[in-house]
Nucleic acid binder design. Structure first.
Length: 893
DNA sequence: TAGACATTCCAG
DNA sequence: CATCGCTGGAATGTCTA
């Protein structure tokens, strides 16, 4: 196969289309893998016979799955490792199907492996019907729409219809899920799922659209992280209350900043604030929007009601006051809540109604924002706001009652309560007394009387949670009244820490601490986003490293999109993983929950602030390998981006923001490190380590100036190194430090470090050898498939080409081509980290060589190869390398 | 001693 | 059938230059 530059042009187009989208196209990568595979095969053994076929293999087959993969790819087809939706494959290959699968795939072309073999043998795609595993008769064809959307660029349709003329036009609009019988069902696009009704009665179908035949709909397969990370995340977030809560809050804050950023901060804290929120919001909304035929006589005031997804280990998101009176609490599991019901009483479980919640919240905020008495309406959450009154003297209670009335009317019956006070903390405490469905104004001068404080415990104070109560040593039974007389500021600070101690002390005197006051004085500064994150700690179950990589790609896409939406870039990325705790059961009590876990995290500075998916994805994969959590033990994945700055602020020419710091332009070639002014070296590990690296590299060379060198290559290896993900940079530097005998690592840490690296090595090894279940074909270098041995070969090669006495000119062109090809295959074959590893290996080996012998010709030659030839290969893959640093390097060179 | 990073806690 | 355990921000502890 020719190495023509345009050979993956269609991939690039796909990339462009998907760039900036919520999730990027996984298929592109699969195809790239397969193309790489095909490129490795001898030219005579390939064909285009299966062109247009997208094949999924179900269950055990003869020949086995791997052989079929090979066959399909070899003959121009697309092989799916897993089935994201039934529309994704044109053919499902199986020997036989269990009954359940027969139902699931009853509208698909399910063929025996023989169909593939015979088609290839005869050199054309044979009719599939005679090979049908389901009996072949009168099967409806594959939905044309889904086939078309699955592969935009391949002429699938033509190939399909020529073989199966029965794909009649009548099917054009057949939905994938056959059970949606009513044509009036709203175009709920994406995945149709049967919403399990958590309600006690066994009857189903509470969903807004009525389904005549729900049981058939149940055959729908649900996306899992491993099988379809993108669909999993989308579906998960559509159903996660905590995700919604966070998302809504972020949106409200952003809207606030947009509307008020022009206004100056207040100079003095306001004297009166009003804290307002809905009573048991989710439960109220769920009740108001319940299926009235199923719950005709439900009485919200008397009957206990809770909102949750299921009935066992499902969290109670919200419950009404009748349920609370019986001991039900938010966050409790549904089964546990049920158990608290006295005999004869049942807890009614209602499903979430997120759309209705959003609508009610919109009405709520509309009422508040429309009130002329408020200087500011500060959003706290979807159902809660702090309103800052313009002045004093209004009739606060009357105002509050008026607002509550309007809110109830405009939300169709949601009640809200209002607490009023001279500070945030007093308004909040007052709100507690106001609930449910009331108003309370905290009075008293300068602070409320003991009778007010008597009604609270420490747990009622903002900022005081379980941990703080534990630190107070069971003081949770004391009322705030006794506490304010019995404690002192120093004792609180000893017990709770400086900040929280001070905060509690202030609260006991009816005042807000500095931190809380900031929200009143300069809300825009407080609401301005300082970090971006995605956390997934439910449903995380992986079997192989590539599955995790694919999920990290999705996460990177998600946070990158968030960054773009708020117009920011990140300077720092953290990967946080939850790992099943030793001794914890493999499957925890909560369905697909994380169970008992240990948390680990590692951060990486990006050097140049970035919002690029590729940069983020690369860093995340590197961090994942550094953390070395065995894939099967993973129970949670979180990505946090910090050190945000506006995306305008990162002009490509901002001096001092680049990694090298000293490198400002091609003309300003490296001043000796010793003379680099300290002040221009910004803080940041990348910068300081880079300095160290350069010092290390440069020092032992004597007569450098005497050798004519291309000006560009002077910062060569350093530039190359800096363009690597920070994790790898760190490793390379550690290697260097170790080799030179520099001991920058403490004793205890060293051991932990060794252990971690051993584990990381095992993880990578598992990935390589396929023992983790990877289906990737081996990539060979000089016939060698073992990465370890390839590394040794490469090292020896570098050594041989510049170990000379000054006579060596560097490597042979032929060898360089072979090496480049190897790196390229690694990249395309989804093993970027290995590509990076082997490339950094060369630079390390080189740096070591250079410090020990002065073979400058060969060294310069190698630098040239690294920077001008290897780096571009790495850069070519959008999702695997770092486009922005690439610019840096190219501009430099 | 400042700062970077890891970890913990809280809220809704 | 399950079930959807998020996320931003502050504070504190620890290590290093």
């Amino acid at each position: 196969m020719p190495d023509s530059p345009g050979k993956d042009s269609d991939t690039r187009e796909d990339d462009n289309v998907s760039h900036g989208g919520y999730f990027h196209n996984k298929r592109v990568k699969q195809r790239a893998q397969d193309r790489a595979l095909q490129a490795q095969m001898p030219a005579g053994s390939t064909s285009r016979v299966l062109s247009g076929c997208t094949v999924y293999v179900n269950g055990h087959t003869d020949p086995p799955r791997l052989a079929l993969h090979d066959l399909v790819v070899r003959h121009g087809g697309v092989f799916l490792h897993y089935l994201s939706s039934k529309g994704a494959a044109t053919h499902i290959v199986a020997e036989h199907l269990p009954p359940r699968k027969r139902v699931e795939f009853r509208n698909c072309k399910v063929v025996s492996p023989r169909w593939l073999l015979d088609s290839v043998q005869q050199g054309r795609q044979l009719p599939w019907a005679p090979y049908s595993v389901l009996g072949g008769s009168a099967l409806s064809a594959f939905p044309v729409t889904s086939v078309a959307s699955a592969e935009g660029s391949t002429p699938t349709l033509a190939a399909e219809s020529s073989n199966t003329p029965t794909v009649a036009a009548e099917h054009t609009n057949t939905p994938t899920v056959p059970s949606v019988s009513a044509p009036t069902v709203a175009a709920g696009n994406s995945i149709t799922r049967t919403v399990a009704s958590p309600t006690v009665p066994a009857t189903r179908a509470d969903a807004p659209s009525t389904r005549a035949d729900a049981p058939a709909a149940r055959a729908e397969t649900f996306p899992t992280v491993a099988s379809d990370p993108e669909a999993f995340l989308r579906s998960y977030f559509e159903h996660s209350r905590l995700h919604k809560l966070s998302e809504w809050k972020a949106r409200l804050r952003q809207e606030f900043v947009r509307a008020h950023s022009a206004e100056p901060p207040l100079t003095a804290p306001p004297t009166r604030v009003l804290h307002i929120d809905f009573d048991c919001f989710f439960a109220t909304v769920a009740f108001l929007h319940r299926d009235k035929r199923r719950f005709p006589s439900l009485d919200f005031a008397r009957d206990p009601v809770a909102v949750c997804h299921g009935r066992g280990s499902s969290d109670v998101a919200s419950c009404n006051y009748a349920a609370r009176a019986l001991g039900v609490r938010n966050g409790m599991w549904a089964a546990s809540a049920q158990r608290r019901m006295p005999a004869g009483t049942t807890l009614t479980l209602l499903p979430y109604d997120f759309a209705a919640i959003e609508a009610a919240s919109a009405a709520f905020y509309a009422v508040l924002r429309g009130c002329p008495d408020f200087r500011w309406v500060l959003p706290v959450s979807i159902d809660e706001a702090v309103c800052v009154l313009r002045g004093e003297g209004e009739d606060e209670i009357a105002l509050a009652q008026q607002l509550r009335r309007e809110i109830r009317e405009r939300t169709g019956g949601c009640t809200a309560s209002v607490g009023i006070g001279a500070s945030l903390v007093l308004a909040r405490l007052a709100l507690r007394l106001a609930k449910p469905d009331g108003v309370y104004a905290a009075g008293g001068d300068p602070s409320p009387p003991d009778s007010f404080w008597e009604q609270f415990g420490v747990r009622d104070l903002p900022g005081v949670g379980g941990a703080a109560v534990a630190k107070l040593g069971g003081a949770d039974t004391a009322t705030l009244s006794t506490l304010r007389h019995s404690t002192t500021l120093p004792s609180l600070q000893t017990q709770l820490g400086n900040k929280l101690g001070g905060k509690v002390w202030a609260a006991l005197h009816g005042q807000d601490d500095r931190e809380s006051q900031r929200m009143l004085l300069d809300p825009c500064a407080v609401f301005d986003r300082k970090s971006v994150a995605v956390d997934i700690n439910w449903g995380i179950r992986f079997a192989t490293v590539p599955q995790v990589d694919a999920f990290l790609d999705v996460c990177a896409g998600y946070v990158a999109n968030k960054l773009r939406e708020c117009g920011k870039r990140a300077g720092n990325v953290t990967l946080k993983l939850h790992r099943r705790a030793a001794g914890a059961p493999v499957e925890p009590p909560k369905y697909l929950g994380m169970g008992r876990c240990d948390a680990v995290s590692q951060a990486a500075g990006l050097g140049v602030p970035s919002g690029d998916v590729g940069v983020l994805a690369t860093e995340l994969k590197a961090l994942f390998r550094a953390l070395a959590v065995p894939v099967r033990e993973l129970r949670g994945v979180a990505v946090h981006l910090a050190k945000l700055c506006g995306d305008q602020e990162v002009g490509p020419r901002t001096p001092g923001q680049w990694l090298g710091k000293g490198r400002v332009g091609a003309g300003a070639l490296p001043a000796p490190v010793s003379t680099t002014p300290k002040a221009t070296t910004p803080k940041g590990s990348a910068g300081t380590s880079a300095e160290r690296y350069r010092r290390l590299r440069v020092s032992p060379v004597k007569d450098r100036a005497a050798v004519p060198r291309p000006a560009a290559s002077d910062p060569g290896v350093a530039a190359f190194l800096e363009a690597l993900p920070s994790q790898l940079q760190r490793e390379v530097r550690r290697d260097l430090a170790g080799a030179i005998g520099e001991s920058g690592v403490g004793r205890g840490r060293l051991r932990a470090e060794m252990q971690r690296r051993a584990e990381a090595a095992r993880a990578v090894n598992a990935h390589l050898t396929g023992s983790g279940g990877t289906l990737l074909a081996p990539v060979r270098f000089q016939g060698e498939a073992s990465f370890k041995r390839v590394c040794r070969t490469v090292e020896a090669w570098v050594a041989a080409t510049c170990s000379g006495n000054g006579a060596s000119d560097g490597p042979h062109e032929r060898d360089v081509l072979v090496f480049l090809r190897y790196v390229e295959k690694l990249c395309v074959g989804d093993r970027v980290h290995l590509a990076l590893r082997v490339a950094s290996l060369v630079s390390t080996a080189l740096a070591l060589r250079e410090t020990s012998c002065g073979d400058t010709r060969a060294y310069a030659e190698w630098e040239h190869i690294l920077v001008r030839r290897v780096l571009p290969v790495l850069n070519r893959n959008r999702l695997t390398f770092q486009t922005e640093r690439k610019l840096d390097v190219e501009w430099e060179v």
